[in-house]
Nucleic acid binder design. Structure first.
Lengths: 249, 249
DNA sequence: CGGAAGATTGAGCGTAGTCAAACCGAGTGG
DNA sequence: CCACTCGGTTTGACTACGCTCAATCTTCCG
């Protein structure tokens, strides 16, 4: 049971060359939204992007895919594992701006200036595909719908950040942690994992940096939510016992 | 002197139909970055976008250009005045996610889902140009560099939000307000206004919402910065007396 | 002149930060 | 096999920053 949680459900895809139909599942971000005409436009630009992603790469825990300020060359599609996006602060600390899991893209923050605005670091041993942004640019310049897909992908980053701003700007510590857990739950559920039982890949300190609070407060808030019978917490293993209650903190 | 501050320096542009070279000044966001080959590619897609912007529109203070959840039809280029982007909270309050001033674009948050993720409201009587996103999409689909410009514009929103996350996640109230003032200063300076003396268009409450603190704390922090001789504050009229000191709060 | 909206200031309180100690599990080496 | 270290986590005591509630003041505008 617990083993199943820590293994991707569609791990079979990892053993064979990526096929479009599989990638639709692995990378919901990459393809058209369900309410659009063609659920997956085989043989077109999107398929060519996917072809490009054959350059698999393993990344060890703590390894950096790219650093803040480096020139922007690649987009990374996460096959397995998870990552954090960090911004260096003047005092030497780091601010975590985002967490990314399998099926999500990494590195889009470089589109604006041609330089990465953040660093991308693996939270665990992971596997990614590198996509040359120069080639993506060529595909976009050519006729086709690739450009609208890319714009939507980047636009989605904007929307994601908006909700993070709401969390940081208007919620107290319990609400922040609840929002974080619900967000994790929802994203894992969308990828076929359990929505109520999962394993966090980040430390208390990293959660705190992301949520704008100290690691001690994160820890205290976890036990507080546990006392309210909303979650069970065993180190990084989380069991949500009352989704509704968590949403109404 | 003070009159000059409240009037756009290049106001002449408002009286005549927009010409590309003028718009390069008015909308630094819209065009290519200076280090690129062609500083301004006349007669190409970008020029066609600018032609589209002939649909001027006056917006009264407090008027809404678009509301959260509405379908995304237009991008707005701000000619004069200023705006706020707000997100509705469950408790009926609003969270301000961004302020926008003349020469900036408004409404790009709708690219992701075809729905606006925020509401855009005028902070003062303003003037905007509406740009049909459908037509922008056509231009992007056609061959040309329009798509890369648009992707950069959207990507810039991502980067802007990153620094806001840093402010909300890791700074105390004095640092937040200092960062806010320096940001205003820098953006106004980039548009030809004074970097050290300007007039805020938003209330203390709106600043507080944007910075994740209460209006009382904003007010107290203003007087605190004033006691430290870093700024002179007269209601909404700000004079920065020590830019360096403000940056090192 | 009076009302309304915004801004300032004060007093008291509470949430979350700081500093510190103890705990726990995993890995390492004697 | 046990002792040891080390990174991560939990818990406690104390503090302080910023919030809440409330009163006052200013400016604007009908």
């Amino acid at each position: 049971m617990r083993n199943a949680l820590e293994q991707p459900l569609r791990q079979s895809a990892l053993q064979m060359p990526p096929l479009p139909t599989e990638l639709w599942h692995e990378y919901p971000d990459l393809v058209l939204r369900p309410n659009e005409r063609t659920p997956y436009p085989t043989g077109n630009d999107t398929a060519r992007l996917i072809d490009l992603m054959s350059g698999r790469r393993k990344v060890r825990q703590g390894e950096c895919l790219y650093r803040e300020g480096e020139s922007f060359q690649y987009i990374y599609a996460i096959h397995s594992g998870s990552f954090k996006s960090t911004l260096a602060l003047t005092d030497g600390c780091e601010q975590i701006s985002n967490f990314h899991m399998m099926g999500e893209l990494l590195g889009l923050d470089g589109v604006a200036e041609g330089l990465h605005a953040s660093s991308g670091t693996a939270l665990e041993d992971s596997e990614v595909s590198t996509v040359s942004y120069a080639y993506v640019g060529e595909l976009c310049a050519a006729a086709g719908d690739m450009q609208s897909t890319m714009m939507r992908l980047i636009g989605r980053e904007v929307v994601r950040n908006y909700s993070h701003v709401v969390v940081l700007g208007s919620l107290n510590s319990a609400q922040r942690l609840a929002a974080f857990l619900l967000n994790q739950s929802q994203r894992l559920h969308a990828r076929g994992y359990s929505a109520v039982e999962f394993h966090l890949k980040m430390t208390r300190g990293e959660i705190g940096s992301y949520l704008g609070m100290t690691l001690e407060t994160v820890s205290r808030t976890f036990t507080e939510l546990q006392l309210q019978r909303l979650v069970k917490v065993d180190r990084r293993h989380i069991t949500i016992t009352c989704l509704d209650g968590l949403a109404h903190v």
